[in-house]
Amino acid sequence: MSDEQRRKERLDRGIKIRSDSLYAIMSWRELAYLTAPRFLLIAGILLLPLLVPGMYWQRVVSVVCIYALLALSFDLMAHYVGLVSLGGAFFIGTGGYISAMLNTSLGVPPLLAIFIAALLGGVICTVLLLPCLPLRGVYFAIVTLMYPLFLARVIEALDIFGGTDGIMGVESFPNRWVEQYFVIAMVLLFLFGLRRLVNTDLGLVLRAVMDNDQAVKASGMSVALFKGLAVFIASGIGCLAGACIVHIYMWSGISLFALDFSILPIAATVIGGGGTLVGPVIGCFILVPVSELLREFGTLRIVCYSIILMAFVVFRSEGIMNYGRRKYHQFERWVKV
């Protein structure tokens, strides 16, 4: 019997097939099948700050949201436009410094400063990245990795923007609940906003740029324009995250250009499942708390962290979200060949 061949068969669940069509709205069960995962996610994120013990963990939730915004921006660039960006720290730093300066020198209130920083930072990052847009793959990744290192050293060497001390006395959010729910609202807004964007005709063009930029040129559209637009959206989200973190910590310094902000979103995307947009957010909700829990291990923290990451890459390289989606929509069985 050892030479018996078996094959795993995957079939769509009946309810999946039925609820693909418009008729889903005629049955509560099928409606629930379609919307329950989304509601579960939204409700889960909204209730999380109330469920966690103490203010320390509430702060962790805020930090998770910061990373989730970065991961969303990474996923959009990498899996919908084909630009693998290691520039998370670049976006965070740019947005953070702009918002801190607006607040301390011009007295702009935090909630307004954050949005100005997102827009202005998006423009600045896009302009700075413009020369690199023709690059692809690992070359773009390397160049975007250079930017945060470059900016941090410039600030340090020229002693501008507060130099190594950073900018002190940045105003915080009006109260901690505003802080908490502002970042959560931003994550949900951009999560569902981006999901909608990538399915519009514009999103399709962005995916086409990733697939085949020659054909986009032959279709009479400027590849640079669409890449620039995508980078603007992604860096704007990143800068927004950076501006939030500055007002959470009430301080802006060179550590905003730390490599963590570039690497963790990528790890979260790997764990959550690239190209799903939800996946990276879920990945952040796993990775950041885990890294907090591992603090007790001291130096070994990085080791544990790496092992978790490696296990995911080796055993579940498709990511939680892709795996979960498949299990939700399909059933599997072994059939004899």
């Binding site: 995916r207 086409a208 697939d211 020659q214 054909a215 986009v216 032959a218």
Partner: peptide, 14 residues
């Protein structure tokens, strides 16, 4: 040079 990851008719949306 089609957009391989898209259905044929979506190729024309671009």
């Amino acid at each position: 040079r089609p957009y391989y990851s898209l259905p044929a008719y979506k190729n024309l949306v671009i």
